[in-house]
Design a protein around this nucleic acid. Structure first.
Length: 496
RNA sequence: GGCCCCAUCGUCUAGUGGCCUAGGACGUCGGCCUCUCACGCCGAAAACAGGGGUUCGAGUCCCCUUGGGGUCACCA
């Protein structure tokens, strides 16, 4: 059995978006599943739109996602001579010809046909030019493109799609398409095929937006005398209006970079993306890398386009709720050391990192992360919602401040009083602090919840959080007493 | 408009003629737990686009209609 070779060929005209990431992921999975190779090929033949930053952005995105490749990145422009040679060979073998029609007149014809709601196809004006006619025009300096000569015959071009089944298209519905520009540069349809032949690609896994390219490319494979690879056209990812998502019209919400910046766990994003148009046939939705590689197959890719159900301006669900749900799942179930590594990178970035977290405070750090991670959705939450655990300059959410603190004016005295009790404790831990709190509540004849919720707000800035006495233990007596004692400042600020 | 593809809960989906009074997940709502919130657990509402066939029997096969998407570049 020959080696499985797949490729991911992005055009570097922007950042990596989730559609591209999903394509890369499926190719990667297929390669890993079959012990094959994933080739990364940058399709930069559109020099005007290709940029260095874009190439780097795509590489960074793939790396962040954990999708590694085995060969490349190759750059398509470096193989331009291969493409031209192939085009020349096609001319020699009669599979292509030079066309001298001016782009402007063709564009005008197309436009006219479109508005007249007619079929728009190249009329084949130069298809049967004699050698003399070609020579004359070249001598006259008329620029020409190279067109593929689509066989004029009855019947259809067909191929077996791994996802869609048999796809057929009649020869007469395919126009003679351009494969080389008048400036001598090859076009995608040709370059792509030539590169795939050279790279010995066995399976082409790409979006359904390439379907009409495929029939034409099959013709190219045949004309070039190369074996036709297996095609698998995956369904597209659509936006809320059911439009194909694109970086141009959707901006950051579809950029892989956005998810990195917002504190997503790379594999969680992969896990979410693979579920868009693929399922294992069981109820399993959460997969480790190895599990997913094991479970993956082309046959279980669906035919139906899926909607990327992103939300905007929602503090909790800033993207597809299911993506958030999967991310939070990983956040609270992954080994805490792995979470810690991601939090470290994030803290470093935010200036919240303390080297002791890797040293003498490591145990405390891990314990704290483990305590608070349950209600977080992203890594970023550790520096925002969880800031009070790592710094003293945390914000206090006005909502609980009103509800749990100001609503009980006496807390202004009670909280410092509680701080005194804590300070006087022989040992300060979960049990002793709870006992002291309940004791004080009893003495004051109030519900313990008043003290508990009040101090939660003051100590963590949050309306909700882990069990309060676990929090106290993690925060430590020193910080607890200081924050509870210094409560006057809070009231002073409120009275302003 | 031509060509190609597709059609199950709000969203992601299971379903390959009888196991479907259509299953799961997310989201939503209710309950339990509780110092709060989350987790967890329990429960609820929520879908086969429409119409014809075929068949003893259709979400599942066929046709039509409707709807949606893709594509029609000297972009990739």
């Amino acid at each position: 059995m020959t080696e499985v070779r797949v490729r991911f060929p992005p055009s570097p005209t922007g950042y990596l978006h989730i559609g591209g990431a999903r394509t890369a992921l499926l190719n990667w999975l297929f390669a890993r599943k079959h012990g094959g190779k994933l080739i990364l090929r940058i399709e930069d033949t559109d020099a005007e739109r290709s940029t260095r930053e874009s190439i780097q952005g795509i590489l960074d995105g793939l790396t962040w996602l954990g999708l590694d490749w085995d060969e490349g990145p190759y750059f398509q422009t470096e193989f331009a001579s291969d493409h031209i040679k192939a085009a020349e060979r096609l001319i020699e073998t009669g599979h292509a010809y030079k066309c001298f029609c001016a782009k402007e007149t063709l564009d005008a014809k197309r436009e006219a046909a479109m508005t007249a709601k007619q079929d728009v196809k190249y009329d084949g004006a130069c298809r049967d030019l004699s050698e003399d006619e070609v020579a004359t025009r070249e001598k006259a300096g008329i620029p020409s493109v190279i067109r593929f000569r689509v066989p004029r015959r009855e019947g259809t071009v067909a191929y077996e799609d791994k996802v869609l089944g048999r796809i057929e298209r009649r020869y007469e519905d395919i126009e003679d398409f351009v494969i080389v520009r008048s400036n001598g540069k090859p076009l995608y349809l040709l370059s792509n095929v030539v590169d795939d032949i050279r790279d010995r690609i066995t399976h082409i896994i790409r979006g359904q937006d390439h379907m009409t390219n495929t029939t034409r490319q099959v013709l190219l494979y045949e004309a070039l005398g190369a074996p036709i690879p297996v095609f698998a056209h995956m369904p597209l990812t659509l936006d809320l209006e059911k439009r194909k998502i694109s970086k141009r019209s959707h901006g950051e919400i579809v950029a892989v970079q956005f998810y990195r910046d917002r504190g997503f766990i790379p594999w969680a994003l992969c896990n979410f993306l693979v579920l868009l148009g693929w399922n294992p046939g069981t109820d399993q939705e959460i997969f480790s890398r190895d599990e997913l590689i094991e479970a993956f197959s082309l046959e279980r890719i669906g035919k139906v386009n899926s909607v990327f159900n992103y939300r905007k301006n929602d503090p909790k669900f800033f993207t597809d709720p299911k993506a958030i749900a999967i991310n939070s799942h990983y956040l609270r179930t992954m080994p805490i050391e792995e979470i810690a590594a991601m939090v470290k990178a994030h803290f470093l970035d935010r200036g919240l990192w303390n080297n002791a977290y890797d040293g003498e405070k490591k145990e405390w750090f891990l314990k704290t992360l483990d305590l608070i991670r349950d209600r977080f959705h992203t890594i970023n939450d550790f520096s925002t919602l969880g800031r009070a655990y790592f710094a003293d300059d945390y914000e206090i959410d006005p909502k609980p401040l009103a509800k749990n603190v100001f609503k009980h004016p006496e807390l202004k005295k009670w909280l410092p009083l509680l701080a005194e009790r804590f300070a006087a404790l022989e040992r300060f831990d979960k049990d002793s602090s709870e006992a002291a709190t309940r004791q004080l509540a009893g003495e004051l004849d109030i519900k313990p919840g008043i003290l508990i919720n009040g101090m939660r707000t003051v100590l963590t800035g949050q309306l909700a959080g882990p069990g309060m006495f676990d929090v106290l233990e993690v925060l430590g007596r020193h910080r607890v007493v200081a924050r509870l004692t210094n409560i006057d400042a809070l009231y002073a600020r409120a009275e302003e």
